[in-house]
Nucleic acid binder design. Structure first.
Length: 814
RNA sequence: GGGCGCAUAGCUCAGUUGGUAGAGCACGGCCCUUACAAGGCUGGGGUCGGCAGUUCGAGCCUGUCUGCGCCCACCA
């Protein structure tokens, strides 16, 4: 290092304290205009670090949990940028889901109805409460999407402001909304690709159905909830004999839907019944009795009725035994009208059966259950009630749609599926190619994939979302030819089959014999979300860009959506290109409130972050977030903000001190200074290693501890007398002085850069005082990450322990 | 019913390949020492959830139990 004069800062010119709010706004503006965060599309994939940013749901406001996890990503990104990587860090807005749909409905008091024609200049304002008493206005899908854009634009701006203030080094030019034309086009292209490869198929089959939302749901959206149910012991007859037996069921209202009876093949109590027909009470319907390994002799009475459909096992039995289909529940979850004594509903006593059913028809399952229990209490022909004893309480786990309030039903409906169950081994192999952080999170993916039982149901009977791009031909009688889907050309996308005309047809042929009908269903929102890496890379739209951005380097996300978002994204990348979507998954934990409950909007315990920024400063809040290891749930603790705040203050003061002394610097020749640099080099090596494995919390802790213990509390005090050369102190040579000043500056420069990913504002502020000019790197965030090589130019100390020894002496004196 | 994770000072958490328990906050004491009182120095405080095992030696490895959290499971 050659002698040179450095610009210095006069401490009297600096503010007494670091004004974080003012500095944050100032640097935000600088960063945006400088283009520091921009992806350079001319650079190769190898030079680039690609982030598959989670697009937040746009439906109100962000909370402190977002701040937490998005900070993690930004810390990783800022480190990679300093390592010289070309960063691709986009932001998406997820405005394609149920939350947005609900919000638009309420705000404008509208409902989406795909059959409604498009109104070119529809203008709607926020609905008044008076309007809300009227029926909602029906608007077409295209209008609904426009309203969605209109409403979410405000939210998106607010989100962007918050994320900018948080210091996320996002390239805002790479923003997208999941409902925009390009994303809808890509989702539809994805479907066409899946279909052409044989992965997507149409099926008329029992599917999990939510009776309130009136849509099919996928396995991944289903959760079990404990529920207090009752075992109802009901006596069945046996056709052609006086024999009888008692089944136990929690769903007596499905008795009219009974299509069979089963017990375990080795169950001696019931073996004599196999092959005979049971006769249902009340309805007198003969149904086959068959053995099944799936029946548990220990459960209930060991023999049970099979209904279409009480649960997933019923579906299995119905398929394997080729039983009749008696689907008494309608899509709204109410018992449909039907007549006993017909081919579909045979009965030995049709009159009585119809009389009993008249008590149930039109009721929902809860109501029907009560009603049928009353019917079952009445004595039958033999003078005793079919309900042999009072219902017994039983704890059961019942399947619910995760957003639903009533149990799911299995209904046979027409749905689109993606074939996944036959690809478990390949999916597991892809999961193993990906590095999960923390590693144990891979288990979640493996368990889910291994236990996958149903293909991915892609279709939803909702109105708002990305339409499935299919039409069907109508034959001469006007019947839909389901086996003849008509697909749009790729350049026609995005299409809405309810509004757009298929190739080779005229709009006038819609619904006409010999014409066509449009698919009414839309995609599962995960169908679009599972394409975020491809949305970022413009897959199928710009192949050279795709090659530079796919697969991504990291997918940041939370653990509860491994089975959905991570799983589907892995599945899509595999089905489309036999690739992994990214090389690393980084899982942030949850923020827990002081009661250690997960902070979430639905719990109503969220804390909005903006006032935290004002109160503690953004760097302090980021410090709190970055202190948590990946995958670890973290308590919301304002105490930690204070510690972060103190760190920024200390940095400010220490820097003011180091940089405020004018003078020459020279070679770092003094033994103590060399010993300090040696310690610094070890720190750099450790923190670099930590960051390379996404252990930013460890790097931060290490740096922070070094900063307080070795830098401010000791080295700075030890170097001070030499650097200062006060009039009444001991005299030092120039070499001793310049060595001290050089070492102090080097230490500050290195520590600033080590802190920069976590504390972008204070480090940038200090960097700008002199280092920006000195180094030619205008921003600390564009400066190179400190390396061993950089510090190796300073010779090692003669005695490896001299720093520790000096510290001992220093401490003893004080 | 299965799987995963967590359990260390009053609080929030570190603890890398097994080698005499750590930090910050809080608490007590002493300092307004010329970067910093939004500081500095210093002190007290822990059978590392229980039990058993491997080992010369266990917070760390093995087994088991308890508590909490999460994920999953064919709901009769």
């Amino acid at each position: 290092m050659t002698d040179s004069s450095f610009k210095t800062v006069d401490p009297t010119e600096l503010a007494k304290h670091f004004e974080s709010g003012e500095a944050e706004r100032r640097w935000d503006a600088v960063w945006q205009s400088s283009g520091l965060h921009r992806w350079d599309e001319t650079k190769s994939r190898a030079e680039t670090f690609v982030v598959d940013t989670p697009p937040p749901t746009v439906s109100g406001s962000l909370h402190v949990g977002h701040v937490f996890s998005y900070t993690h990503t930004d810390v990783i990104v800022r480190y990679q940028r300093m390592r010289g990587k070309n960063i691709f860090y986009p932001m998406g807005w997820d405005d394609n889901g149920l939350p947005t749909e609900r919000r638009v409905q309420n705000y404008f008091h509208v409902r989406c109805e795909p059959t409604e024609p498009y109104v070119a200049d529809l203008e709607l304002l926020e609905a008044s409460s008076a309007q809300k008493k009227e029926r909602p206005r029906l608007v077409g899908r295209k209008n609904f999407i426009e309203l969605c854009h209109q409403l979410t634009e405000l939210d998106e701006q607010a989100y962007k402001n918050l994320f900018t203030r948080l210091g996320l080094s996002v390239d805002w030019r790479q923003s997208y909304e999941t409902i925009n034309d390009r994303c809808r086009k890509q989702a539809q292209l994805s479907f066409l690709d899946l279909h052409s490869k044989g992965h997507a198929y149409l099926s008329f089959a029992p599917t999990m159905w939510d009776v309130d939302f009136q849509t099919a749901v996928a396995q991944a959206e289903v959760q079990d909830r404990p529920k207090q149910g009752h075992f109802h012991h009901i006596e069945f007859g046996v056709e052609g004999s006086d024999d009888s037996f008692v089944i136990a069921t929690t769903r007596p209202e499905l008795l009219p839907a009974c299509v069979g009876v089963t017990a375990h093949p080795s169950d001696k109590r019931y073996q004599h019944l196999f092959g005979k027909n049971a006769v249902t009470p009340l309805f007198g319907v003969p149904v086959p009795i068959f053995p099944s390994e799936l029946a548990d002799p220990e459960k209930g009475s060991g023999i049970l009725m099979v209904c279409t459909f009480g649960d997933q096992t019923d579906v299995l039995w119905w398929r394997s035994q080729k039983l009749a289909l008696r689907q008494i529940l309608g899509k709204a979850g109410r018992l449909e009208p039907l007549t006993f004594g017909t081919e579909a509903y045979p009965s030995l006593e049709a009159t009585a059966a119809n009389a009993a059913y008249a008590e149930l028809v039109g009721k929902n399952t809860e109501q029907a259950r009560k009603a049928i229990v009353e019917l079952l209490r009445a004595p039958n022909g033999a003078g005793k009630p079919p309900l042999v004893r009072e219902p017994e309480p039983v704890q059961q786990a019942v399947k619910y749609f995760e957003k639903g309030d009533r149990p799911l039903e299995f209904l046979s409906t027409r749905q689109w599926f993606a074939r996944l169950v036959d690809k478990k081994a390949e999916l597991l192999a892809k999961g193993n190619e990906i590095h999960w952080h923390p590693e144990f999170m891979a288990t979640r993916f493996r368990d889910w994939t291994e236990n996958l039982g149903i293909d991915w149901c892609l279709s939803r009977q909702r109105y708002f979302g990305v339409p499935i791009p299919v039409w069907f031909a109508l034959d001469e009688r006007g019947e839909t030819a389901w086996e003849q889907p008509i697909f749009p050309a790729a350049d026609q996308l995005p299409v809405d089959p309810m509004a757009d005309t298929p190739p080779g047809f005229a709009e006038a042929q819609r619904g006409q014999p010999g014409g066509f009908v449009g698919e009414t269903d839309i995609f599962d929102t995960w169908f679009t979300s599972s394409l975020t890496p491809q949305i970022g890379s413009h897959w199928l739209l710009d192949e050279s860009r795709h090659e530079k951005l796919f697969p991504a380097d990291i997918r940041p996300q939370s653990h509860e959506i491994i089975r959905t978002w991570a799983f589907y994204t892995i599945a899509k990348a595999m089905l489309h290109e036999n690739s992994v979507p990214w090389h690393n998954v980084v899982i942030s934990g949850w923020i827990l409130d002081p009661d250690r409950k997960k902070m979430s909007k639905s719990q109503g315990n969220v804390i909005t972050p903006m006032h935290l920024f004002d109160e503690h400063g953004v760097d302090a809040v980021r410090y709190w977030a970055a202190s948590a290891r990946l995958g670890t749930d973290t308590a919301f603790d304002p105490q930690v903000f204070k510690i972060g705040r103190r760190l920024t203050t200390k940095l400010f003061n220490a820097a003011k001190f180091v940089l405020s002394h004018a003078g020459q610097t020279g070679d770092i020749s003094h033994e103590l200074d060399r010993a300090f640099v040696q310690k610094l080099r070890e720190l750099v090596e450790r923190t670099t290693k930590a960051h390379d494995s996404f252990q930013f919390a460890q790097a931060l802790q290490d740096t922070e501890s070094f900063f307080w213990t070795h830098f401010t509390d000791t080295f700075l005090e030890l170097a001070k007398p030499r650097a200062w050369q006060s009039a009444d102190g001991p005299s030092h040579t120039d070499a001793e002085r310049t060595s001290a000043i050089a070492a102090l500056r080097l230490g500050l420069s290195v520590l600033l850069r080590l802190f920069a990913p976590v504390l972008p504002y204070i480090t940038e502020e200090i960097w700008s005082w002199t280092f920006a000019n000195e180094t030619g790197h205008a921003s600390v965030h564009g400066a190179p990450w400190p390396s061993g090589a950089e510090l190796a130019s300073v010779p090692a100390p003669a005695d490896a322990d001299s720093f520790a020894r000096a510290v001992d002496v220093f401490t003893a004196i004080n």
